[in-house]
């Protein structure tokens, strides 16, 4: 009964602390929300680019160009080696089939190919990359691996596009971490500063609490809860902002990248797991800030 009553008191006291200095807490919650929104957005965009990379990886077909001197039997042997090495499916494309495909793709201009004295296209193998190797790093390694095979003259898999998206993803990843560090420090500093003010404003109350027999823990807990609530409220506001951003900007992004992602659309900017992470992070940072404030400024 006593623990329940004390717990209820702690939450009442923390809520009353928020109510008694609304402006200070409003500014603190808003600042925390902006910081967490920025970090959440960077994280969400990173996630989105990763999704795009995944889509691109799925579309990429690795084309392995073979030496024209390679006979059909050797090409089949090479195909078997590639299938065994990569775990993917390999199709042999003879020069005639490649020329025919080119002619079809060129449309009316394709007729001109018929007047060529000889077929300039080399034989090639087309590899459908297994799912686990559809990442930029794995694709690059695979290309290196294939280039080293005897009879292979070249490998093409849309390297430039993948590399560009990959560097964007990396930049967002690093940016996200830097952003997170800034958010962490800012949130902790804001919570600590507002709680310092709260402790100062309630020094009389603390003095009386001590006189009537309050333990140190009893005095400190409401301030810790207050910091936790600040962080959590900041995270809730940031979450609402991210949801609004996704609703307003998401359809535009989807149509912008429709050529890459098809009808399935983009991966969502904010998934339930990330929303939960954001709330937990906000609460934990608020609690961290309040621990610092209570440790440094609350002399009981």
């Amino acid at each position: 009964m006593s623990i329940l009553a004390k717990t209820a008191y702690f939450w009442r006291s923390a809520a009353s602390g928020l109510r008694h200095a609304p402006f200070v807490h409003f500014v603190a919650v808003t600042t925390i929300a902006i910081a967490l929104f920025s970090a959440g957005l960077a994280r969400g965009l990173g996630h989105l680019v990763d999704g795009l990379l995944g889509s691109l990886g799925g579309e990429v077909q690795v084309t392995v160009y073979l030496s024209p001197e390679l006979d059909e039997e050797s090409a089949v042997v090479l195909r078997q080696r590639m299938e065994a090495a990569t775990g993917g499916t390999v199709t042999v494309v003879p020069p005639e089939a490649a020329l025919e495909r080119l002619a079809t793709e060129l449309g009316d201009l394709g007729e001109a190919l018929a007047h060529l004295p000889e077929n300039p296209l080399p034989p090639s193998l087309e590899l459908e990359v297994p799912r686990e190797r559809r990442t930029p790093g794995a694709l690059k390694a695979l290309a290196e691996e294939l280039r080293a095979l005897p009879g292979v003259t070249g490998v093409d898999y849309g390297e430039e596009a993948v590399a560009r998206l990959s560097s964007i993803s990396r930049a967002l990843g690093y940016g996200g971490w830097v952003g997170f560090a800034v958010v962490m420090m800012a949130t902790v500093a804001i919570v600590a500063a507002t709680l310092q003010l709260a402790i100062y404003a309630r020094r009389e109350e603390i003095e009386i609490q001590k006189l009537v027999g309050a333990t140190d823990r009893f005095v400190k807990v409401p301030f810790l809860i207050e910091g936790f609530l600040q962080g959590l409220l900041g995270a809730v506001v940031a979450l609402v902002g991210l949801l609004a951003f996704e609703r307003l900007v998401g359809p535009g992004l989807s149509s912008l990248f429709a050529f890459l992602v098809g009808r399935g659309g983009l991966v969502p900017l904010l998934e339930p797991k990330q929303a939960l992470e954001l709330l937990v992070t906000g609460g934990a940072l608020g609690l961290g800030g309040s621990f610092i404030a209570v440790g440094r400024f609350l002399r009981v």
């Binding site: 009553a5 008191y9 009537v212 027999g213």
Partner: peptide
Amino acid sequence: AFALDVLGVPRAEA
């Protein structure tokens, strides 16, 4: 009631 909050006395009893 402040002195009773410290002792964790339930609201109604306090």
